[in-house]
Amino acid sequence: MSVVELATLQVSKTVDARGTSCPGPILAAKKGIVDVKVGEIMMVLATDSGTKKDLPAWAKKMGHDYLGVLEEGGIFKLYVKRLK
């Protein structure tokens, strides 16, 4: 997805994992995804740069669709679409 597409996504749940380190962001994603309906999008906020690689791996394993990441001033916004 392009930066513009990511920035205009309709997010139904935001999970704030800023300030946490591995494995904090994926723990937060696991807790957050249950509040998202299938087909809807969760945004994970993180400051740990390893999350850029970890969240796609988490989404793949869990069977969800990782859409991409936006970076703003050291904060990563990562988008995941719940598929099941």
């Binding site: 591995c22 494995p23 994926i26 988490w58 869990m62």
Partner: peptide, 11 residues
């Protein structure tokens, strides 16, 4: 424990 928690978070 980090590996264990990571694995559990991945289902």
């Amino acid at each position: 424990f980090i590996i264990a928690n990571g694995a559990a978070a991945m289902g």
